[in-house]
Nucleic acid binder design. Structure first.
Lengths: 197, 197
DNA sequence: GTATTTATTTAGCGATCACTATATAAATAC
DNA sequence: GTATTTATATAGTGATCGCTAAATAAATAC
């Protein structure tokens, strides 16, 4: 064991709790006091382990992004653009309606609307949201080369379209719309996937 | 003039200011002090004119819903389901990227993610968001009767799909995506509108 | 054993939260 | 004029915000 008094609590477990609270209430919607209580520790222990509220949020977000990122990493391996899109949308529905987590999506809802004090965090999240569309645009460009996507399609716009649907699915789930209905939405979106020449 | 000292400020003008602040920062993201300062009045005047923060928010929301509601009222008059959908999506893009207002959509972003203290407001907004899909579902059912929409389509699901796109467009605009890109998203969504028999 | 290091606890910092008590100012009613 | 009514301005309520100083507890190093 390392020098000094050992930590009483499991840091990853505590971080998981913080992640879920930020996921549900957003960065500004949960206080340090509430976080510490839910994590089963007192406030100074929270600060000594995680620095401050912003760093705790970012650490929780890193944990979240392992979940959220897998949707894209797995889906982009699909053989055709159509299968990629369907896999992403289906994965998003499963994520945003999974009863083991809060409804919605942390990267979309965690700091979308904030007070002036937290615009810094909002901008960080805005930037994070730009990565998946970039990945998708690259994948769709490849699909055009491989012939399973019409060359008339702009890969960037198609990626933005999928991201728009994903964002909408997160909002709908947060509003209380269930998995069944959202899967029907995905079915409609995929009906006559119109981009194969 | 009525009895008593007359109000120094224009109530509708002050409400317009409050609406924009709530629109940009959400219910919990702006304080009474900030609101009063921006409205050019002091705090007790705000309370005597509007009651409390929740009532002020709801009054601001009523003002907003005149803007947001017109999109649907106007669009539902279009002749075919396809034109209705296009008009709604185009109207949403214009609303959420209008430089005269904050980015995004107040009914979607105003209280989507809140602390436990404001779950009451969140639920009220969740309910408000259910009205447009109901209108759309009725209109799409009518379109099926009139023959410009396939009878295989579930009007409710199609309405939920359009609402999902609308929500996504609001999130994208709030994230900094511009009008041009969002109009391309709408174009993709409308490409080969797949629901005419 | 003592010294050092780190985590915990209690208690409290100044700032801001939504909201209001009190006094004063400005209008009408008579 | 006086009485009444309503809006204003000043100041301040208790509660909570993010965060921390100080003391104590529990481990290792030697």
């Amino acid at each position: 064991m390392t020098k000094g008094r050992p930590r009483k609590f499991d840091k990853e477990e505590a971080l998981e709790t913080a992640m879920k609270l930020f996921w549900q209430h957003g960065y500004e919607g949960v206080s340090i006091a509430k976080l510490a209580e839910a994590m089963g520790i007192n406030v100074p222990s929270l600060y000594s382990a995680f620095g401050n509220k912003e760093k705790l949020f970012m650490a929780a977000f890193d944990k979240y992004s392992l979940l959220g990122g897998h949707i894209y990493i797995d889906s982009l391996k699909q053989k055709t653009a159509r299968e990629v899109a369907y896999s992403i949308l289906k994965g998003e529905v499963e994520l945003v309606t999974n009863p083991e987590h809060p409804d919605g999506c942390m990267v979309i809802l965690g700091a979308l609307v904030t007070s002036s004090d937290s615009e810094h965090i909002k901008k960080r999240m805005d930037e994070m949201r730009q990565t998946p569309p970039k990945w998708m645009a690259e994948r769709f460009a490849q699909a055009i080369k491989e012939g399973d996507l019409s060359p008339e399609v702009d890969p960037k716009s198609l990626a933005c379209y999928i991201m728009t649907l994903n964002s909408g699915l997160a909002v709908q789930a947060k509003s209380g719309v269930g998995k069944k209905e959202l899967m029907k939405v995905v079915d409609i979106a995929m009906k006559n996937w119109p981009f194969v020449d």
